[in-house]
């Protein structure tokens, strides 16, 4: 069986027809898929109950992607402590992925602990709008999709082919999203864990009065922070 055949999207809720190009929306269900990976066939639904960072890279055996894989491998344990799993993807074959992972181990001494989707026929890349034809019609851009334990798309990041991503920002983003879920707050620019958070703006006059009495650090009625 060819890679294209084995990598075919087999979601039981979706027809076998090639998926239409699309872009997930924040707050909506992440598109379901089943794909061949370096850890065997995996469905998105297998991650239910954990956060997923689904990220694409342009191609195996390329220098920027290699630096990114080293960086993602470096944060994998930190992410797992946060109940987050990494899932890579590129439009390459399983054999290419395996050879590259082995090469990274050989040349850099680093194990790649997460699965990588071999999306040879672009099915998952198409579902997630990972190909930017203005840059390349045959490679995925450097996309990141943060999917929560309920399978909802919570954040998306797109970087061009030339520019490696910042994995510290991905951890910061996860921390911010999890803080929002746990405490019902928002997080300001450049927020890091331990810093004050934003109390969501009031929506009624009653809320405004209650807020002003609540002891928050308010610059104005709509701009209040608090420590957690």
């Amino acid at each position: 069986m060819s890679n294209q055949e084995t990598n075919k999207i087999q979601d039981h809720n979706v027809s076998d027809a090639a998926p239409a190009a699309s872009l997930p929306r924040l707050g909506m269900a992440a598109p379901a898929f089943e794909a061949v990976t370096t850890h065997g066939k995996i469905r998105l639904e297998d991650f239910r109950g954990t956060w997923v960072v689904l990220f694409s890279h342009p191609a195996d055996f390329t220098p920027v992607c290699t630096t990114e894989f080293l960086a993602f491998a470096g944060i994998a344990a930190e992410l797992r402590q946060r109940n987050v799993e990494l899932l890579g993807l590129s439009i390459d074959s399983p054999t290419s992925h395996i050879a590259w992972v082995r090469n990274i181990k050989d040349k850099f001494g680093i194990d790649i602990p997460f699965p990588i989707i071999a999306d040879s026929n672009k099915d998952v890349a198409t579902l997630y709008g990972m190909v930017s034809p203005g840059e390349s019609k045959t490679e995925t851009s450097r996309c990141v999709f943060v999917i929560d334990p309920n399978g909802i798309v919570r954040a998306m990041i797109y970087y061009p082919l030339t520019t490696g991503r910042n994995t510290d920002e991905i951890i910061r983003l996860i921390d911010a999203l999890q803080t929002t879920d746990k405490h019902g707050v928002a997080t300001p620019a450049n927020w890091k864990p331990g810093e004050k958070v934003i109390v969501p703006p009031p929506t009624t006059m009653e809320d405004v009065e209650a807020r002003l009495k609540a002891g928050f650090e308010c610059t104005d009625w709509y701009f209040c922070k608090k420590a957690l």
């Binding site: 065997g40 066939k41 995996i42 639904e45 991650f47 797992r80 799993e85």
Partner: peptide, 12 residues
């Protein structure tokens, strides 16, 4: 083993 790997493995 990670839960996602167990789910995928048990299915297989």
């Amino acid at each position: 083993l990670p839960l996602f790997r167990v789910r995928a493995g048990l299915r297989e």
